[in-house]
Amino acid sequence: MSLSASDFAFVAGLVRRESAIVLAPGKEYLVEARLLPVARQAGAGSVADYLGTLQRRPDPAAHRSVVDALTTNETSWFRDREPFSALTDVVVPHLVGTRAAARSVRVWSAACSSGQEPYSLAITLQQALPAGWRYQIHATDISTEMIKRASAGEFSQVEVNRGLPVQLLVNHFTRSGTGWKVAPALRENVTFQQLNLTAPLPALASFDVIFLRNVLIYFDVETKRSVLRNICKLLRPDGWLFLGAAETTIGVDEGFERVAVGRTSAYRPRATVPAGTLGKG
């Protein structure tokens, strides 16, 4: 019944890459207990069977389920903080200059999980944009279950305690049952859609900012390249792409250049096609 050392190492590696949470040896019982419902739901006879299949046949959606199961209650509001500060300090002031005619900003949260990221983005834009501006956050995730949860906009006491300044809780949420619900003024600016980034993407209006954090790490380099290429088509030529702290486009897709934004980095489509690829199209 107990987990083999190689199965444990596989799971620990996955979780560390995604969440920076270290599962030290000795936590086999935790992996076993958390993954049992996931394995059962996938129709596997045991956690070991489930992990065996997963290692023979990698499946990004299943990888996500494993990480989600092992990082319950770990999701923070304004996760990593710096990308949100960069939006307020650099990106929004820039957009206010360049989008003055439309007075509208579109942001894509491309792996929204239980919803903390898109609602954190909505709070950030609500605060940073001048009066009279509109914004839309489009939130997608590969998991229909996560889309359902995130779309409901309901969070427990334990969840709202994590990284959400209390003044923002009071301003943007209302009490609902035993927990809290995102206020309509915020919720109405966020749309949700189940979406697989590795499949052909549906037609979406282009975005000024894309948050694609802690997603690429699940993919091999070919898949990363194709995801970035698809994403790039939906990013306005003067837009910003934010990746997770451990991720980069460098060495994967030369269509982006890395730029410093506040105390973090973002990626922007290159203005011109790199010289080496000229004439290939």
Partner: peptide, 9 residues
């Protein structure tokens, strides 16, 4: 989740 079973096991 907070006190009696923070690891969820």
């Amino acid at each position: 989740a907070a006190y009696l079973d923070p690891e969820g096991v």
